[in-house]
Simulated assay, not measured.
Amino acid sequence: MDIQSVYQETILFAAEKHTALQQTIPGTNLPYVIHLSNVAMEILTAAHFSPHFDTAFAVQVALLHDILEDTQTSAQELQSRFGEGVTAAVQALTKNDQLPKAQKMEDSLHRIQQQPKEVWAVKLADRITNLQRPPAHWSTEKKQAYLHEADSILQALAGANTYLENRLRKKMEEYQQYI
Rank of each mutant, 00 (worst) to 15 (best):
I43S: 10
L44K: 11
A46T: 09
A46N: 13
A47Q: 13
A47V: 06
H48W: 14
F49W: 12
F49A: 09
S50K: 11
S50C: 13
P51C: 10
D54P: 08
T55A: 12
A56P: 12
F57G: 05
A58R: 13
Q60F: 07
V61K: 07
V61C: 06
L63H: 12
D66N: 12
D66L: 08
D66E: 14
E69G: 15
Q72P: 08
T73L: 00
T73V: 13
T73Y: 08
T73Q: 07
A75H: 05
A75K: 06
Q76W: 10
L78H: 05
L78P: 09
S80V: 04
S80P: 03
F82Y: 07
F82H: 07
F82D: 09
E84I: 09
E84G: 08
E84P: 01
G85E: 13
G85T: 03
G85A: 08
T87V: 09
A88P: 00
A89M: 10
V90Q: 05
A92E: 00
A92I: 01
L93N: 07
T94M: 01
T94Q: 01
D97E: 14
Q98A: 09
L99M: 04
L99N: 05
P100S: 09
K101S: 01
Q103H: 05
Q103N: 06
Q103K: 07
K104W: 06
K104H: 01
M105K: 03
M105G: 03
D107T: 01
S108F: 10
S108T: 12
L109P: 02
H110M: 06
H110Q: 11
I112N: 02
I112T: 04
Q113P: 03
Q114I: 06
P116V: 00
P116W: 03
V119F: 02
V122N: 08
V122C: 12
V122S: 03
L124M: 03
D126L: 01
L131T: 05
Q132A: 15
R133E: 15
P135C: 05
P135M: 07
P135D: 12
A136V: 10
W138Y: 15
S139W: 08
S139C: 03
T140I: 14
K143P: 09
K143N: 09
Q144I: 14
Q144E: 15
A145W: 11
A145M: 11
Y146L: 08
A150W: 01
D151F: 12
D151H: 14
I153H: 08
L154K: 04
L154Q: 08
